[in-house]
């Protein structure tokens, strides 16, 4: 057991809140969330913090640990030098409710606005649509998303510029990609991505990919392919000409 120092944000807004220092006995194998629980148990019973599974699957315990978005339950204390003070602050991109709990409701509003799945008409004699595993593997990668919103938190468009109303953010580009690239879907979401999703605001600096706890290649496999699809429709004069000539696409 070793005594470690933590600085944890306390308060109900970033303007008036403060970093409060705690010293906690920490043992081998402990994660940041364990330390927060020990602080709750021994020193600050009113410390607000969301958590649920402690297994990196519920996506509840996201916070900034030493300035980097992390799931507290998956961040080992042994990743930091013993003499380093560990600073835990609420997710920067969202309003603080209290201490480490933030209001992420904007994400659920954005989710509701996404165009829904539009099933492809049945093309087999038994009245069903069939697809092969090899062609559905691509959108399956995006199904790993646990909706922790760390990608939304680190994205500078939301984190620094607070463009929640104009930009749906990486998590919802991933969600759009699930449907848009699905073999059984025929929806065209390019207009939505450009006009309402604000995909042009993304400058592909890959912070979202760096922080994803599920290692989804958000930028390379979701956002850039969607940007290319938008380019097909709006920024490719050759395709525009082809569409005019053939009436397709």
């Amino acid at each position: 057991m070793a005594l470690r120092k933590f600085r944890i944000f306390r308060g109900d807004s970033r303007e008036t809140g403060e970093l409060v220092e705690f010293e906690v006995e920490c043992g081998e194998g402990m994660v940041v969330l364990d330390a927060v629980h020990r602080i709750q148990a021994e020193q600050a019973p009113d410390l607000a913090c969301r958590w649920n599974c402690k297994a990196g699957k519920c996506g509840s315990c996201g916070a900034d640990v030493n300035g980097k978005p992390k799931l507290m339950c998956m961040t080992r204390l042994s990743d930091y030098p013993e003499d380093e003070v560990i600073t835990i602050t609420p997710m920067r991109a969202f309003p603080v409710i209290r201490d480490l709990a933030t209001d992420v409701s904007i994400n659920y509003e954005n989710n509701r606005r996404l165009p829904h799945f539009q099933p492809r008409p049945a093309d087999f004699e038994d009245g069903e649509f069939r697809m092969y595993q090899w062609e559905v593997e691509r959108p399956q990668e995006f199904r790993k998303c646990i909706e922790c919103f760390l990608c939304q938190n680190v994205c500078h468009v939301l984190r620094t510029h607070d463009k929640h109303q104009e930009f749906i953010g990486p998590a919802f580009f991933v969600r759009t990609a699930v449907y848009e690239m699905h073999p059984a879907d025929v929806g065209d979401r390019r207009e939505h991505l450009k006009e309402h999703g604000g995909i042009g605001l993304c400058n592909i600096t890959k912070c979202c990919t760096e922080v994803c706890p599920e290692k989804i290649k958000i930028t390379d496999n979701a956002i850039i392919p969607l940007k290319e699809r938008v380019a097909d429709k709006y920024y490719d004069p050759l395709r525009w000409l082809l569409r005019k000539l053939t009436g397709r696409g």
Binding site: D64, G67, K68, P69, R92, V154, H156, V157, R159, T160, H161, K163, G198, G200, L201, C202, N203, T205, C207, E210, V211, K227, E228, A231, Y234, Y235, D236
Partner: peptide, 29 residues
């Protein structure tokens, strides 16, 4: 410095990404 690193403050107040001046990036193909 858009951004210089993830989770680091930027020198710019406004931001339009690749939606205005940088639309030409779509000519990559």
């Amino acid at each position: 410095s858009q951004p210089i690193a993830c989770g680091v403050g930027k020198p710019w107040k406004s931001y339009s990404g690749e939606s205005k001046l940088l639309l030409f990036q779509n000519l990559h193909r």
